[in-house]
Each structure stands twice: as structure tokens, then as C-alpha cells.
Design a protein around this nucleic acid. Structure first.
Lengths: 219, 219
DNA sequence: ACAATGCGGTTGTTTTTACAACAGAAAGTG
DNA sequence: CACTTTCTGTTGTAAAAACAACCGCATTGT
């Protein structure tokens, strides 16, 4: 687990906390490392969760498949990002969606109660972690609202523009790489892949964008 | 402001805190009461926010109007509910959407820094408020994901079923009242009002649901 | 080397939705 | 009460998306 300390150090949850402190916190927070092969489930709908989880290697999708097999990708987790935080509240109930590794991945589980119950002893930086988590959840909240803004656009083109504009803004550049292939992007925006592909090409022909695979450029 | 203490007491943020403690906390947290007439803006896109806000009377919508005037209702705030929490993080930037009173409303602003920086003095219950806020943000998070699930449904009917099913579950009853009129529900689900109205009536004719105004019954 | 698989793009058809326009009911106002 | 305004349902038409089927290309694995 120690080899991931540098990754944790860059994670928002441990912002401002040094390597040594992180190392000593690992046991304090009951940290457990788990690894998954591509395609395996990290969390499954219906399970109960008492942990906050950080992705330390790989790539994850938050997915929801409904009765009829329609798949929605509700979001993706990058290295260093935290997830599971929607279930920290005591009575929050069972998980409502799946978390799936879309490439070989490693995550670290942290006991929620240990995090929010500041321990008296060694962990001088514990209070900082609590505050970081606070901000992290709050930011995730903002992200979710932003995704809602994309999804609430009526047409496929508007959804694409909304999503791509935000990505460009986030990367501070009109050039950027997205974490989805076409099918995944379609699932993310809840549209049909072929229709979306069509729309993307039209937008390219109209000179709005350029792209190659996952790389996009806004003009 | 004191007349709203009973409302605050029922609010999740102050769960487990007594009337007297709440009253004494009001100044500690720099609480400010504001009132709004129906249609007035509580928060506007582009503003900066350093407060957590609780609705103590009335009804609010979180809205997003885009360049072309398309209106989306991202969510609604009930009495006792908290909002603004997506902007508690220091570098969280300007507000991305509006909060509008859809009836005469009153809200109380609380300084975020005062909340998350536990004061040493009188506020014995301050730590509890922090934890409550934690859980509240986390729950809101879950709500947002749930809304994403509705929005990610492909057809109007599926969106309606997804939304109505959840409301029924939330109310623990197949009978419930929704906080939207038809236009607002359409904006909430990002569909055309008339098409939705049409679909609702078809569903009624097929014996799936009954409704009258905002009252619904699932069969 | 070759088959199998996955991905992205294209096209035509069908279904669904958006849009526009209107009518009746309900609610609010002077 | 008369009047306006708002809300809901209805219909027909136009636009858009979903769907299905297929192709070419790159990647993978044996």
C-alpha cells in the first residue's frame, strides 16, 4: 500500500498532509488496498458501504443499468479521486449504482467513521482531512450539477456542445482528451451512439470542432 | 429571526441541537434573515457565495437558463433544506445557476467559514452541526445522482416512471403530491410540456397511474 | 497469418419528441 | 361579476432521435 502514498498525497482528500503523516494515518483510518481487473465490479448496486474510497490506479465508471438493460454512465473516476461519499450518512441505505473498473485498477478503502470521528492521538492532520473531505464532497456536488446541466439540454448537439465546452474550460485549453470512447460518451450523455457519431461529424464538417479518437479541439 | 428557530430545529443541519443552543449559535454563525417575494432571485448565476443557506419558509427552485432561453429546473428546495453547499470550497468560483423563489419565501444565510471553523467558546454543539452538514451534503449528493438516473432515461415515459416511482418510494405511499405543476415538471425532466402532458394522459388511460393536478397515484 | 473482436462512421427507416396553435377549466383581480 | 391570466389537455405537423444494419479499419489473440 505504501507505494501509493505519493498518489494519495496528490489526492484532494490529503491536500496539505505530508508523506509521513499519510503513512501513519493509513492504519488510523483502517485503509485497505483492493485491486481489480478490467471489467470487474468495485461496488455493486444493493451493497452497503461504510467506506470512502480513493482510486489510486486505473480508471472507473459509475454505471446504472435499468430493468430493460439500458446502460447509463453517471460519471467517471480519475486517479486520486474519491468516491462512495454519497453513502457516508448513517441511514443512507444501499448503493443505487455500480462502480466498474474499465481498466486494471487499484483503490484504497477508508473507514468513514474513523475519518469523521477525529481521534485524539497522533493524527495532527486529521482535522485537515475532514475539511478536505468536506470540500471534496462539495465539489463533487458541483460536478453533478454540471452534468445535470449537460443532460438537461434537449438535443444531442446541445449536449455535446455543453459537455465539450466544459471540458475545454476545465482543461484551460481548446485541445483536450476525454475519458470516453464513442459508446461511453453516448452512454454518458444518454443518447444513441450512431446518432451522436453522426452529429459529431456534422459539427466537424461545419467547422465547429476537430477530433481524432478521444482527442478533441474546439474551433 | 427567532420565530424561525423551530423550523431550524427540524432542519437536518441542526439535528440533535436544542432551541437554546440554536438561538445562541445564530450570532456565532453570523446568521442573516432575508425574505423574497414570489419570482424574486435569491441567488444569481455569476455571483460569489460565502454562505450556506437554509430555507425557513416558502419554496425555491434551482434553475438554469441557457443562451437560447431554454429553462431547466435542476432541483427544488423544501422548507428546512439547505443549499449553496456546492460552493463552500475556497476556489469554487462563481455560481453556475439561479435560485428563485416560486412563492414568498424566507431564508437564513450562515457564514461558511464560521461553520467549518469550530469556535472554542460557547458552541458545544458546533461539532454536531459540522457533522450534520457533512451528512446533508452527502445526501444531497445522492439526490443529485438520483436525478441523473431519471434524466438519463431515453423516453419521456421512462423519465416519468423513474421520477414518479422514486417519489412514491420517498413518500412510502403510492399517493403523493409533487412540488411541480406541469410546466415545471417538464422543465425538471427536460421534456416538452405538451408531449409530457400527452404521455401522462396515455399512462392514465392505460391504467398505470391516476392524477389530479399535483396529486398522483401509482396503480 | 488469419480469424475474431471492438470501434467509429454511414445510411435509411421508424418512432418519438418538439413545436405551434388552440380550447376549456381554474384561479386570480379589479 | 366580468375579465384577465394561468394552467392543462389536445391535435397535427415538422424535426430529431432511436434503431438496425452494414462497412472499413485497427487491435488482439492464437
Amino acid at each position: 500500500m505504501k507505494k501509493y502514498v505519493p498518489v494519495l498525497k496528490r489526492a484532494q482528500l490529503f491536500a496539505g498532509v505530508g508523506d509521513d503523516e499519510i503513512t501513519s494515518m493509513l492504519s488510523c483510518l483502517d485503509a485497505r488496498l483492493h485491486t481489480y481487473k478490467k471489467g470487474e465490479y468495485v461496488l455493486r448496486q444493493g451493497e452497503h458501504l461504510n467506506d470512502i474510497i480513493i482510486l489510486v490506479s486505473g480508471n472507473l465508471h459509475i454505471r446504472n443499468d435499468d430493468y430493460w438493460g439500458n446502460r447509463s454512465i453517471l460519471g467517471h473516476i480519475d486517479v486520486g479521486e474519491m468516491f462512495g461519499e454519497a453513502y457516508v450518512a448513517p441511514e443512507s441505505g444501499a448503493l443505487l449504482n455500480d462502480v466498474v473498473a474499465i481498466e486494471d485498477s487499484a483503490v484504497i478503502f477508508f473507514n468513514v467513521k474513523r475519518i469523521i470521528t477525529t481521534c485524539s492521538s497522533a493524527c495532527r492532520f486529521h482535522a485537515m482531512v475532514v475539511q478536505n473531505m468536506f470540500f471534496a464532497i462539495s465539489e463533487k456536488n458541483k460536478k453533478l450539477v454540471q452534468k445535470l446541466v449537460h443532460m438537461s439540454k434537449r438535443s444531442t448537439r446541445e449536449k455535446l456542445i455543453s459537455y465539450l465546452s466544459e471540458e475545454a474550460k476545465r482543461h484551460n485549453s481548446p485541445n483536450f482528451t476525454i475519458p470516453f470512447n464513442r459508446q461511453q460518451l453516448a452512454d454518458f450523455l444518454s443518447v444513441d451512439r450512431s446518432a451522436m457519431s453522426n452529429e459529431l461529424c456534422k459539427m466537424r464538417d461545419e467547422g465547429l470542432i476537430e477530433f481524432e479518437k478521444n482527442q478533441f479541439k474546439l474551433l
